[in-house]
Nucleic acid binder design. Structure first.
Lengths: 293, 293
DNA sequence: TTTTTGTCATAGGTTTAAATTATTAATCTG
DNA sequence: CAGATTAATAATTTAAACCTATGACAAAAA
């Protein structure tokens, strides 16, 4: 049992339009017999007559009349598929599904979006903000196209591109402003507030603090840098935040911010994507665009 | 330049569903290379990548994700075409576009529709009421499937089937009830009211009246039998109407109805359709159904 | 009527497209 | 590194679609 093909529908449409097999065949750039055979086959598939062949004129049957607009709609749908493909190629990508970790997103995203929109007015940007481990899964599954995270990720399936390094700064209560900046050794003596488990920034901060440590830290983990800073402002302890977050987060809090002496704590922020992603080269371009330097 | 085919879309859908070329190929009952080639061709046509082939898993690209629902919609539309064809075949015809002349329609239509609906609950009946000449044109053009008119029509392209004969009766003012029924010769002396030009019934009535005649008849033509009877009731003249119309039209008028002595005037009502109409045999069945005897 | 014309269907042979099997290439997994 | 998994490529076969030529039929013209 053969199936309906678009060829059948295209030929049908031509005959319906011209009401003449010969003219329709010409319009389709094929011979009249070829068209006749195809129409006949379509009628056989449908088990119905579509055209009434008179000796001197051809017309649609009742069923053919109902059939025509649907056939036309299908053909139009197919044309639209092609248009869609063409449209999606102008500009860098068309749609970009990008993931960013929470300790970067609020500070970098406005800038990224602005830059992408400027160079690429029709782009459709979809952002996903969650923990690195989730982003890695979603990237692997093809649910997002790229992710901006702290490097290294060391997944062999991913390409990693560094975007920039960022320093961590110390946030203390306003009252501590005059005190000297502690080095990493002295930090262990202070009450250090951290993000919840799962945030890479938590681990990065901890690793700087020379604490081997999870030493009796009661449940004071915060779910965002913003909360962390507010807690510091309330005098509960001190914390580290990325330099990039300073402007936004310490605006309205009664806290003192200070840089560490060398060796300063840092992390590398980068972009990752599947090596197999066909957009690879374009993603490289996007990385260049985002990179501030 | 090759074009998109439904095969492309069917294969695409399978791969999108299974996210695995081998399994998709199995689902399509073809070999994996055949499917790979077709998908590749589709991607070439669209000038875009639809799938991201990893070494161990396959996923849709961003564009593929947008492409999928449209492809699915098209395939569904095609399936519906087939359903439509199947549905249209149950019952006698599915849709019947029928034309009837005005001097028959009001009296016969209710009966016809009742009968058709009873034997054929899902039928879609479309009625066109106009003059014979118009019906013939519309029939020839395929705009209607059949027509009920007075025979003969004598179009070689049409099949004619007689339905029944109907007599014409004389309608006189109530005051004339006691007078003897005039024969056709005496009719010429009376003021005979007729339908407008174009109605076949006008010609049929005239031809009975032995008038060779269009003799100075002022513009008193009516546009319906109903009007004609009302005019008679008002004492303007006399008229002929088909027997079938008596019950409906003389109900509320102050007129006297009488049959003619032999030879009585009659006409044959019949059904016509294009010989080339594929529904021919079914239309014969419908004629049998309509025929009162 | 007979002939001619217009129009679609059928037939046989050729070309093009699609499928098959077999093989290769690449990349994970153990 | 060896074995397994998965998709791509190659060569060949099979099937579909098309073309030219011809036939059938009905309408129009002679």
């Amino acid at each position: 049992m053969t199936k309906i093909t678009l060829k059948h529908l295209r030929y049908f449409e031509a005959v319906a339009l011209h009401r003449h097999f010969g003219h329709a065949a010409e319009a389709c750039a094929i011979s009249q017999p070829a068209l006749s055979v195809q129409i006949k086959e379509l009628e056989q598939i449908l088990q119905t007559t579509l055209f009434e062949r008179g000796a001197r004129n051809t017309s649609l049957t009742g069923f053919g009349t109902e059939f025509a607009p649907r056939a036309r709609a299908i053909l139009q749908g197919v044309d639209e598929l092609q248009d869609m493909a063409r449209a999606s190629k102008q500009g860098i990508v068309g749609r970009l599904r990008i993931g960013i970790i929470p300790t970067i997103a609020p500070y970098l995203l406005p800038d990224i979006i602005t830059k992408l929109m400027r160079t690429n007015p029709d782009i459709d940007i979809q952002v996903r903000e969650t923990l690195t481990s989730h982003l890695i899964n979603e990237l692997a599954d093809g649910r997002i196209d790229a992710a901006i995270v702290a490097l290294p990720v060391s997944e062999p399936a991913f390409t990693e591109v560094a975007l920039f390094d960022e320093k961590f700064v110390l946030v203390r209560p306003e009252a501590d402003r005059a005190k000297p900046t502690p080095d990493r050794a002295r930090l262990t003596e202070m009450k250090l507030l951290l993000l919840e488990e799962g945030h890479c920034f938590r681990d990065q901060a901890l690793s700087f603090c020379a604490t081997q440590s999870d030493k009796a830290r009661e449940g004071l983990d915060a779910s965002s840098l913003s909360t962390l800073v507010q807690m510091v402002g309330a005098g509960i302890g001190v914390t580290l935040i990325p330099e990039m977050a300073v402007a936004v987060e310490t605006q309205s809090a009664r806290v003192a911010v200070s840089s560490f002496p060398e060796p300063q704590p840092t992390r590398t922020v980068g972009m990752i994507w599947r090596k197999t992603n066909p957009l690879s080269t374009k993603l490289l371009g996007i990385a260049d665009l985002i990179r501030p330097a």
